[in-house]
Design a binder for these strands. Sequence first.
RNA 1: GCUCAAGUGGCGGAAUUGGUAGACGCGCUGGAUUCAAAAUCCAGUUCUUUCGGGAGUGUGGGUUCGAUUCCCACCUUGAGUACCA
Length: 937
Amino acid sequence: MSYDFNTIEAKWQAYWAENGTFRAENSSDRPKYYVLDMFPYPSGAGLHVGHPLGYIASDIYARYKRHKGFNVLHPQGYDSFGLPAEQYAIQTGQHPAVTTKENITRYREQLDKIGFSFDWSREVKTSDPKFYKWTQWIFTELFNSWYDNEADKARSISELEKVFSKEGNTKVQAVCDEDVTEFTADDWNGFSLKEKQKVLLKYRLTYLAETEVNWCPQLGTVLANDEIVNGVSERGGYPVIRKKMTQWSMRISAYAQRLIDGLNTIDWPQPLKDSQTNWIGRSEGASVTFKIKDHDEVIDVFTTRPDTIFGVSFMTLAPEHELVSKITTSEQKSEIEAYIEATAKRSERDRMADVKTISGVFTGAYAEHPFTKELVPIWIGDYVLAGYGTGAVMAVPCGDQRDYDFAKHFGIDILNIFEGIDISEEAFADKDNTIIANSDFLNGLKYKKAVKTAIYELEKLGQGEGKINYRLRDAVFSRQRYWGEPFPVYYVDGMPKMIDLKHLPIELPEVEKYLPTETGEPPLGRADVWAWDAEKNEVVANDLINHTTVFPLELNTMPGWAGSSYYFNRYMDPNNENEVFSQDAIEYWKEVDLYIGGSEHATGHLLYARFWQKFLFDIGITPVDEFAKKLINQGMILGTSAIVYRISGSNKYVSKGLKDQYDVEELRVDVNMINASDELLPEDLKNWQPQFKDAEFELEEGKYIVGREVEKMSKRWFNVVNPDGICEQYGADSLRLYEMFLGPLEQAKPWNTAGITGVHSFLKKLWKLYHDGEEFGVADTEPTKDNLKTLHKTIKKVEEDIENFSFNTSVSTFMIAVNELTAQKCNARAVLEPLLVLVSPYAPHIAEELWSKLGHNQSIATATFPLFEEKHLVESTKQYPISFNGKMRFTMELSLDLSKDDIEAAVMAHEKTQQQLEGRTPKKVIVVPGKIVNVVG
RNA sequence: GCUCAAGUGGCGGAAUUGGUAGACGCGCUGGAUUCAAAAUCCAGUUCUUUCGGGAGUGUGGGUUCGAUUCCCACCUUGAGUACCA
């Protein structure tokens, strides 16, 4: 009976589905363990072999944990809102929901073939109204909250209203918009309802504000900072410009410090933590207020170097700074306006590409130095970013290279405030190795002391204070798209109102086209039925809007990261219609124990999800404020493209070794035609595409050898390998083993189908081990010592490997075990049965098949992981090398269960050792059981 | 520029409380089996050699009886980020 993997795999996949083998219960006597993958966006292209890498790793771990006696939650779902389906809809008119459904079906088929132990009864889809009902609900909760800096947590907005009506806002320590003005309780109580709403909006954790956004004209939508890569959109690579728009934002900045602090409590990769820390960008310094000559307004700046305040010789504002128009003198007006216009036109990308050119314009206005009271000119320049700090800097040319370059370029004074430092060529930015000079009360002080003193003096003047600044900006939450969650928001008199939970979800309306309207409104503006009847509490036709009972609904939709920011909690109780999840469920599962996914989400999904989790914790519905205890980033699997060389201007192709003799063009061809020795059969190429039909070939040694190039797996390089094909040809177990065998989980590595024969022949050998000729057969005989040694060596190694996520090395361990047991002609049930349990997380189908043949009628998933016993390893002899003085080496037979003294005596008695020692006594004999004996003279 | 990670055969990679470097697999070479191929099995495969050996884990130092592993400096590659005041 041969190893018929196709039949076996189909059989067990059906069995698992029918029996609900991997269904997790929300309560158990066993300890819980939650293993999660980052859920996929179901794209039209389907899965390639790179996608399941992380899923296989997490599946191995989940299956292992079940063998170890845990109640394991291992769910899967789809992040099914997104741009590609919508772009496709725009081109074809096909409803994104239809495309998405088809893609999900395809994904599911592909996933099922690989034999994952997902609990599909818990599947979630972010585009499913049953799911996004809760995305909308969380949005309303954020709207109804503010951040209390004193309690360091989010609190209900109704509590804030009570405080305002009692004592105004002067004592409130809240994270809020910059432009909040002070008011008393009497002021507050005198405000109209609309005025109150306007004020509260400045405090809410999700708020509506006119902000500078990253606008992508080609995509017709705004983008978050993490959706822009190198100044162009992540999707499509289109240019991005700055634009002012009224948008919903999330006050993630309120959580900046907790997002940094929380990193210490979780086991995530250091590079990922570093990139989040960088992204949040905490810097300590001071805010300093500069008065402006002949104006009431002041300029606030943030600086990390208050110690250099006496080096200030000018100030620079970002061109977009709101004070620019107010302070510019009439003589300078035209020049300033021209400059502002020129900067606004430049795209993010141009600005980034051109960081060397120094540009700026003098406003004509002067600021007053807080200590010297001297006047310093106020400039604008695009090296100052509107989005960082206050969008204004106090320029200290001697201590900052950019200020220095600017000053040199425009002939502004450069004051030297560093003792014994030459600044004639460049600025001196090293803060640790200097003493301040020419700085009044700061003279003679070192950096740290000078900073403290400067802040103290500024506070005394009332013109500054110590401040911590974060680079992290609030996240824009509106997208001018169709295929996203609608906001549960309608507008009364221009002010947003939330729709109550009992009327959620607000479902996406049907539209004729998925493009913005002719008047520039988002696609939802095209919906006939898209207004809120506040009396009937339902969505009605938007032509009914009368502004007394029927109101316009928000036309934007939420960004892609909305649903993915809490889906991991929803898996705990996915079908709950009354709550996002029950308290029983979340108290039981608490958080994700192991999360596996790509590092590209470091500053997007993984940051937003941590933010929402902290918010949900603050409002008391999650028991922990970090959602994933441990996280592993799996590396990308790259494609190995195949290249043929065509002699220019002909249809003749030369083998790789001959290409240098000709003028050749490189063409990529389908990698699936290439064999293990990089050989391409000319016939295959001729049949592949019409253009090669009449191709001629120049071979080397009768073969056509292709060139190889490792690059991203992509259709356009013809280097995509599909898991379905592999499963058909070698089986899912081979695919699973090979994906792990390729290399360490975290590393990027190229795929090369040729190598899969190695793991495939391992499976065949494993199969043979349980068969005597054609017949299945194991014996109830006593295992030999060697049998047990092999088994226990394997148990130990595999257990260690899985715990350390070194799945690649355990595949090797299995191969060695099977080779050894085959050589030992082992057919003892006592060895072969536990061996299957070890193998089953990696190759579950073959394990189930052999397990059932062994007479078990329960899935192997319920079997207990075998117990390792040390004694089986030490009861044998081995050759040990002995080295003397690190130079002379020879070996001798030693039994491992000898005592240290015995070994020492044996070494001393050894003839060769005695020769080497020449009568001297060795200082020590080092014995490492199972490893080596070393004699030191 | 800044931050981080990594450098081991033809290739993917093993070995780190410091102890026989190159496990395991691919590829390659030879052999068995076969009419032949595939498949399977066996042997070999870091380099070098006058067959005694010698060299060897990016480079140069250091600690140690002993270093791929620890320390210092440098080089290279990859990733992230970038006018962050």
